[in-house]
């Protein structure tokens, strides 16, 4: 499996009248072919901004401060707007959270899909239509031919999201950025959507960067998981490593805050306080003030990434050899007994 998308030392800031907001801070990760990497975190932690900035969809006051993103070995951070337009949809495409605002309400679904196809491929209307019908079937819309000329408001939320997915897949991109694609959907519809993403990955070998705040959804879909807090990736590893052997107190907090359906005696461990505002972030670890395991050094110096296994990294001083030994809370072990 080769690396298809690599993000190196990526930092991004917004220049605002109040000052500089450091939305993404020194992020490193790579996405392999056919892999699903999930990025989890609370709202405002920078996960959506990261996705949008890879596609250069952010407003003008956003500025990449350092680092680069490489798609198939090419540094796309330096690309001009013209080259980005050739890239978007064709190599890398995105599904947004709200299917209602993604689709144009006045244009029939079929036309919105063929538009995306003909943007990148020089083919006739008829061929594009045939391809669009195939796509609609791929994403599981029955009677696609009958529904081809219907406007989005004829469709339910789940079906709209399927149409959005069809548009995103129109030109066979190598990478799909899925930004909370199931958050606006009901649980039963969400389950179908996740199965669909898994089956599309199997059939097309597309790599997916899956952004979510729901650890349950992530457990179902992701091969690897990156936990993001205040613009930084604080822990990254395979799904099993993150869910059963996490090392960062923030990951423990997120896991403990989920009221698990499978747990009989529900005790909820909330994380005190709120995520920080990234306008002039404090020195040291931004999570320290909410972290009951915080050490004195956390308030002075931000922890580096410690390696736990070839695939598992976490940024917490607790992993330093000099740190006191702390047993992770019990709820980070397997949450459901067989």
């Amino acid at each position: 499996m080769g690396t298809i998308l690599e993000v190196k030392n990526y930092s991004l800031s917004f220049d605002t009248p109040e000052g500089e907001i450091e939305a993404v801070r020194d992020v490193n990760f790579s996405l392999n072919e056919g892999e699903i990497l999930a990025i989890v975190g609370e709202s405002g932690c920078g996960k959506t901004v990261l996705c949008k900035s890879l596609l250069k969809l952010l407003p003008r006051n956003a500025r990449v401060k350092s680092g680069k993103a490489e798609l198939c070995g090419e540094n796309i951070t330096a690309f001009s707007e013209r080259r980005m337009r050739q890239l978007r949809g064709k190599q890398i495409s995105m599904v947004f959270q709200d299917p209602l605002t993604t689709l144009n309400p006045t244009i029939p679904i079929g036309k919105q899909i063929t538009e995306s196809i003909r943007q990148h491929q020089k083919i006739s209307h008829n061929k594009a239509k045939a391809h669009a019908l195939e796509l609609l079937e791929l994403v599981g819309i029955d009677h696609a031919a009958d529904r081809f000329n219907l406007q989005p408001h004829f469709f339910s939320g789940g079906m709209r999201q399927r149409c959005v997915l069809a548009i995103a897949l129109a030109s066979h991109p190598k990478v799909l950025l899925a930004d909370e694609p199931t958050t606006a959907l009901d649980v039963t519809v969400q389950a179908k959507m996740l199965d669909l993403l898994l089956s599309i990955r199997k059939r097309t070998g597309i790599a997916i960067l899956f952004v979510s705040h729901d650890l349950g959804v992530v457990a179902r879909i992701a091969d690897r998981v990156a936990v993001m807090y205040a613009g930084k990736i604080v822990e990254i590893g395979t799904a099993n490593e993150i869910f059963y052997d996490s090392r960062h107190p923030y990951t423990w907090g997120l896991l403990g805050a989920q009221p698990a359906l499978a747990m009989k005696t529900g005790e909820l461990h909330s994380i005190p306080g709120m995520p920080p505002v990234l306008l002039n972030p404090p020195p040291g670890d931004t999570f320290a003030v909410r972290n009951k395991y915080a050490l004195a050094i956390d308030y002075e110096e931000a922890p580096p990434m410690f390696q736990i296994s070839p695939t598992h990294f976490a940024a917490t001083w607790l992993l330093d050899p000099r740190a006191p030994h702390i047993d992770p809370p019990i709820f980070t072990k397997r949450r459901r007994e067989e």
Partner: peptide
């Protein structure tokens, strides 16, 4: 409905059967 609720447990999640 119960089968569709995602649980933060990858081994369980990957093996469970969702009813429709």
């Amino acid at each position: 409905l119960l089968s569709a609720v995602p649980v933060a447990d990858p081994i369980y999640e990957r093996s469970k059967k969702i009813l429709y």
